[in-house]
Amino acid sequence: MERTKAWKTFPFAKLERSGMEAEEMVRPHTSYLKDVWRAFKRRKTALVSAVILLILVVLVLFGPMMNPYNYYSNDYTAINSPPTAQHWFGTDTLGRDLWTRVWVGGRVSLLIAILATLFPFLIGMVMGGISGYFGGKVDMIMMRCIDILMGIPAMIYNILLIVVLGSGNISTLIIAFTLTGWMGSARAARGMVLQIKAREFVMASKTLGASPARIIFRHLLPNTLGIMVVGVTLTIPMIIFAEAFLSFIGLGVAPPNPSWGQLISIAAEVFKSYPYQFIIPCAFVSLTMLCFNLLGDGLRDALDPKLRA
């Protein structure tokens, strides 16, 4: 207001200034995450997928509490019942409520999927970070080891591990998936670390005397995180599928604990007579995998600075 008055009275007088005008930042302050979120919001399919996944998580957590049944007790009055008002998804051949079993099974499947993705990623990132940062002999030896490990087909390796560790519980599956899964992410992390390592801010930190641990954990790995998140999201569906497959062939979670793979496995035997028992868990497995894949795609686009500019 003041300025307006001054300019009307003395338009050609020297402008009074503090000297910092030209350094002023007019653009609103944005953080990296805010920026990513803004880009992500524009990708509708990814956003819808995220919402669906959120609903699924809520149902997995609270679904079993919504009716009076639990996942193991049998209701002999309603064996192989189709979906009804009492049993929303129907019951299986032993008269167990499928609604409850689908959500409890979902808990197991999702828990395995998330943990069996996160652990290998964390291990892989650290391994890849070390290998990429130190380079030379360390890198050569680590990468050759990974090459050899990756040469063994993962499924055979998984089955072997489960047989050795004893099948039937969740931790066995997670350990098996972790041991077979970290190599891929180690390779990915190493590739990215090699790229970031050449950037000048890493050199600057080195010339300030930073220790390797500081450089790896403060500069290199955080900068790979964005892409790694995409990797995690895209790996989860693969683990869900692998778990379903292992349960299907009887190496998964032991009954009566359900998982999605197990439900499908049991239902497959009676598929011709009671298709709903098979279709319902299948649909949830497919839906979850699809949503994670779409979410991963959306995240990748949102995190890519070239697409965001």
Binding site: Y32, E200, F201, S205, G209, N223
Partner: peptide, 19 residues
Amino acid sequence: YHKNVQIIYQDPYASLNPL
């Protein structure tokens, strides 16, 4: 030595950690 000898880099876009 690292404290006493410092360096300024060429590319102002690469020389700061974006995070």
